[in-house]
């Protein structure tokens, strides 16, 4: 009797193996791990001071953590959930992007107006690139040609040529650009401006803004609509935009740029990440200290999970 239960369970479990979401808690110096099938908190891990941006290596062996107040990028071994070493990150790392080559990490050093490029294998600094005041958002193009950094006080997208590590162009956007996201085909960039209250669509070939998306939520003052995190579905259907203190996530038609809906989530929604083959979208809600779970088919918030204080970043391991 028992002999078939285990293989049967394994078979049943394997195609729908739960993703695990890692959430950085900025004020608790911890990560919260969430089982995205059961939608339950699995465990909490102590990390460096003020963890903000987190991303996985492309093989999901390592999790990179911007421990801003420790002035370090920490490397977590995903198999053991232990910090194995720090990378030389420059001061106050906040966000970063991993190049498709899986070993060049582009780190925004918010206090220093530079982007530091670190080789994650050799653990040394490859280059430092001068950018605008308060560098923040980072993204690498899918083909690995471009790395974009946003600078919050200079209000620009800085285009870094990944083959030469040189800044080659700048695109002026609205006030306080926070986050950039390439489309899957790498032809377009979505860039959120927190204080400007807009998302700019930027053509990669011309590096010019082709469209600007505005948001309007009845009963919420326009000044409080502050776009931060952006995520695009792989099927090119939707874009999700976290609207900060407006406590909503906007659902945008990724083809027409029309805003389709606003979903109420927790307070001060910051970053977004997909889980379970993009069927779920997780949001970090800083002020309410929780994660909202959105069903991306029904476009409904299905659950809220309490995590640590001021959840900031979220990364998902399949």
């Amino acid at each position: 009797m028992k002999s078939w239960i285990l293989p049967a369970m394994m078979m049943a479990a394997s195609p729908a193996m739960a993703d695990i979401a890692y959430v950085s808690n900025e004020k608790d110096d911890t990560l919260t791990l969430i089982d995205t099938d059961a939608l339950e908190v699995l465990q909490t891990i102590d990390v460096g001071m003020r963890p903000r941006g987190i991303i996985f290596s492309h093989d999901y062996k390592y999790l990179y953590i911007c421990a801003s107040d420790s002035d370090a990028v920490q490397v977590l071994d995903v198999a053991t959930n232990k910090i194995i070493h720090n990378l030389p990150s420059g001061e106050d790392p906040e966000q970063f992007a991993l190049h498709p080559n899986n070993h060049h990490l582009y780190i925004a050093n918010e206090d220093d107006a530079v982007v530091t490029v670190v080789d994650t294998e050799k653990r040394d600094v490859v280059a430092q690139i001068d950018v605008g005041v308060e560098p923040e958002g980072m993204a690498a193009s899918p083909d690995g040609k471009w790395v974009i950094n946003t600078s919050e006080t200079t209000n620009m997208l800085h285009w870094i040529d990944a083959s030469t590590q040189e800044l080659v162009d700048n695109t002026l956007v609205d006030q306080r650009p926070r986050h950039v996201e390439f489309t899957k085909d790498g032809k377009t960039v979505w860039s959120s401006s927190e204080i400007g209250g807009t998302v700019s669509i930027v053509d990669v070939a011309s590096k010019a803004i082709t469209h600007t998306i505005n948001f309007k939520i009845p009963g919420v003052h326009r000044d409080k609509i502050q776009p931060v995190g952006v995520k695009l579905t792989n099927n090119g259907k939707y874009a999700f935009v976290a609207l900060g203190p407006a406590n909503h996530v906007a659902v945008v038609d990724a083809k027409t740029y029309e805003v389709l809906d606003y979903l109420l989530v927790g307070r001060r929604v910051w970053m977004l990440e997909f889980a379970n083959d993009q069927k779920l979208l997780l949001t970090t809600n800083g002020v309410s200290g929780d994660v909202s779970v959105i069903d991306t088919d029904d476009l409904k918030v299905i659950k809220t999970l309490k995590v640590g204080r001021y959840p900031w970043g979220v990364a998902v391991k399949p």
């Binding site: 919050e152 006080t153 209000n155 006030q175 306080r176 927190e194 204080i195 400007g196 209250g197 000044d223 409080k224 502050q226 203190p245």
Partner: peptide
């Protein structure tokens, strides 16, 4: 509009 560290433009 100007971003000036006061949470709104």
């Amino acid at each position: 509009d100007l971003a000036a560290f006061k949470g709104r433009k």
